[in-house]
Design a protein around this nucleic acid. Structure first.
Length: 712
DNA sequence: GGCCCTCGAGTTCA
DNA sequence: CTCGAGGGCC
């Protein structure tokens, strides 16, 4: 295309029109080869360059845009980002079974819950668990309106345009369908399509992909729909979410309807009346696993009768009526090259195994956690030997597996291949970063030694300082744009930011520091200005984020929110914590009486603020940032300043809601009844607290009375 | 004292 | 994601 590649600004209208026509034909040709013949003749980069040039010319000569412009073509849209979609029915995960015994237990649990005796009939479905990514397809009046990824189960991403490029996904359902139905299933890539894709990548000298699952996930999350369209994705339908009415009353029946509507359903899904039937199907699927066209990682069993499913309901995040029987985790053998000690934000010394890289479950693993020193020595957390006392040594040949198919773990050691000169690993008793003694605390409650060894140099340890800084800027804390973990470490090492307060004085620092900042690799005036803007934007911050960001031991997001709610303002919180250093004080008493805060957490807070260095940094921070007071609470209600205890099971609200409600009305909530308690709201099943309340002569009301009093 | 649940902390790879 | 610890409750 040598002579045609005239700079766009030099094109005249006639040349532009000619080139647009040429581009339309050429891009259309590539699309055809790519999508239908699966045999592209240009690289993705060249193809993208053509599309960009087409877009640029259209931008300069909008009137010349052709009716068949490639930029309008379906499968050619490029999105900025995916929109969020809130699932109307949460996409839950499944409980796992790892042995036949687990499966028998599961069936027993279901029977017990339904109060069925062992003879009563109870049917389950069994189907392979596809190793892909789940997708929810919402159809209204038979038309596909939204496709959403699972996300965190509650909120996913809208990938409708991409889902529409998958041929297994009907745009319109055939036959009689409910007005609204959300069909759920798994997007996957077959093993042979994956291999073919990699062959193509290799032929073009491009990077190859690691495994079909990740590739399928990556393909579905492309902002450029034409890329998704070019990938050979497939879909199995096997479940549902929100619906105006189901077409059948059994699991299998509904899935059969899916097939009738035009979905592809897995042929290995079957119905069984007995546990033995399920287990036989498991063994059958396992024996055929290698020959299947797609990757699977287990077999899913579900109660077939939907009315029983409904009765069974859910436990925390998974349905009580289904379980995933996982295949044994893939194992691999490799050499433990070294043991490195990392120092965490709280000073925890955690050993990490450096491994000879090895492929496990489709990914190359070169690091694995070793938990703590007892794990290396072969002692379990209960004091019992694991690996029958075989310890791990540098140079050992070890087996590793990926727990839950994600986190690699070192499982066992092959003693027959242990080098003769190997020595028992000696866990350091001083911090590798600062040299301070590293000790194991004794748990006062149980008298047992803590499983983690901690560096005691919290104030001088550079490793802890860096980790604290990373925590401070992390996503749920200050979340400063362009100041992530990597920058935190770099800025610390460059001595530009040594503690959180210094982030906010960066811009007003002396000339020399600013020059050093701007002269850093890849930095300049503009990047520095962007960073300063991002920092400015965070000078106002929610109080709970502020508390969480301090990185106090035992104070995570949950406890930070509790504290923010109780103390309202940063000043109030800090003053109370400093006063709580005295265990005789009212401040301490109030603190340990907060529902959710016990003596350990209270002690950690008091200790943090008793340390002058910490207190000083908090004060410096408060000069730089303005934590926003937590939700204003009323001071003029009947409950202002009162301490309320909720006990027993509450039926019209969750305990958290109840507490939030009381606190909005100006009350304090506590976990236990004392003579400071003003009111006890007791639901059914209240025990000792109710008794104590009557002993102390404290007023007790039930939930209904509570709602009456607050006027709802 | 023991059981159950939630929260915190640490970790891997694409 | 998983493990262990802390907290609440019986």
């Amino acid at each position: 295309m040598s002579e045609e590649t005239i700079a766009i600004e030099d094109l005249n209208a006639e040349q532009a029109a000619r080139e647009l026509a040429r581009l339309a034909a050429e891009i259309g040709d590539h699309d055809r080869r790519y999508h239908t013949e699966d045999a592209p003749v240009v690289s993705d980069a060249e193809y993208d360059a053509l599309k960009r040039r087409n877009l640029a010319i259209e931008a300069r000569f909008p009137d010349l845009k052709r009716a068949d412009s490639p930029s309008d073509r379906v499968g050619g849209g490029i999105l900025e980002k995916f929109e969020k979609v809130t699932h109307r029915v949460a996409m839950l995960s499944l409980d796992n079974a790892f042995s036949e015994e687990d499966v028998r237990d599961f069936v027993e649990r279901v029977r017990r819950f339904l109060k069925l005796d062992t003879q009563a009939p109870l049917a389950f479905t069994a189907e392979p668990k596809i190793d892909g990514l789940s997708l929810a397809l919402r159809y209204e009046e038979g038309k596909l309106v939204t496709a959403a990824t699972r996300g965190d189960g509650a909120v996913g991403e809208n990938v409708t345009a991409n889902a529409k490029t998958i041929s297994d996904i009907p745009h319109v359902l055939s036959g009689t369908v409910p007005e609204v139905i959300e069909v759920r299933g798994e997007v996957y890539m077959t093993k042979s399509d994956f291999a073919e894709l990699n062959r193509r990548q290799e032929a073009e000298g491009k990077q190859t992909y690691v495994n079909p699952r990740n590739t399928a996930a990556g393909s579905l999350r492309q902002l450029d729909t034409s890329i998704t369209a070019s990938r050979p994705l497939k879909f199995f339908a096997y479940a549902w979410g929100d619906t105006s009415g189901l077409p059948a009353d059994t699991q299998l029946g509904v899935v059969e309807c899916f097939a009738a509507w035009g979905f592809v359903v897995n042929p290995l899904m079957k119905r069984f009346e007995t546990v033995e039937g399920l287990l036989e199907q498991y063994r059958l699927i396992e024996s055929e696993r290698a020959e299947l066209a797609y990757d699977i990682d287990g077999v899913v069993y579900k109660v077939d009768d939907l009315s029983l499913q409904q009765r069974l309901g859910f436990v925390s995040r998974s349905p009580r009526w289904a379980i995933a029987h996982k295949f044994p985790a893939e194992k691999a053998t490799t050499v433990l090259k070294d043991i490195e000690i990392q120092v965490g934000r709280t000073g925890a010394l955690s050993p990490v195994a450096r491994l000879e890289p090895v492929t496990v479950g489709g990914v190359v693993v070169s690091n694995a956690t070793l938990h703590n020193e007892d794990y290396i020595a072969g002692i379990g957390s209960d004091g019992q030997p694991i690996r029958e006392g075989r310890d791990l040594r540098i140079g050992d040949t070890v087996t590793i597996y990926r727990a839950g198919d994600v986190i690699p773990k070192v499982m066992d050691v092959d003693l027959s291949r242990r080098p003769k000169d190997s020595a028992q690993y000696v866990f350091p008793e001083t911090c590798p970063a600062c040299g301070s003694p590293a000790t194991r605390e004794v748990n006062e409650k149980t008298g047992r030694m803590d499983s983690v060894r901690r560096c005691t140099g919290s104030l001088i340890c550079p490793a802890q300082a860096v980790e604290k800084l990373k925590h401070f800027v992390s996503r749920n804390a200050f979340d400063i744009d362009g100041f992530g973990a990597k920058q935190a470490e770099a800025f610390y090492n460059a001595e530009l930011v040594k503690n959180p307060a210094e982030i906010f004085t960066l811009q007003t620092r002396d000339e020399a520091s600013l020059t050093r900042l701007k002269n850093r690799d890849g930095w300049g005036e503009q990047s520095a200005a962007n960073l300063f803007d991002a920092i400015e934007a965070r000078r106002e911050i929610d109080l709970h984020r502020f508390i969480y960001a301090l990185g106090i031991r035992h104070v995570g997001e949950g406890n930070a929110k509790i504290l923010a709610r109780v103390y309202h303002s940063a000043r109030g919180f800090v003053d109370a914590m400093e006063a709580a250093g005295d265990h005789e004080s009212e401040a301490w008493n109030d603190l340990v009486n907060i529902d959710g805060i016990g003596p350990i957490v209270a002690q950690a807070l008091a200790e943090f603020f008793a340390e002058p260095h910490n207190a000083a940094i908090v004060e410096q921070l408060l000069e730089e940032v303005q934590p926003l007071d937590a939700e204003q609470v009323a001071t003029d209600t009947a409950f202002s300043g009162k301490t309320i205890v909720f006990t027993g099971s509450l039926e019209r609200m969750s305990r958290d809601e109840a507490k939030a409600m009381a606190e909005r009305l100006g009350a304090k909530t506590a976990g236990s009844v004392s003579k400071k308690t003003d009111l006890v709201v007791a639901g059914p099943g209240a025990g000792s607290k109710l008794k104590k309340a009557s002993e102390l002569g404290i007023e007790v009301i039930d939930e209904d009375e509570w709602f009456t009093r607050i006027g709802e």
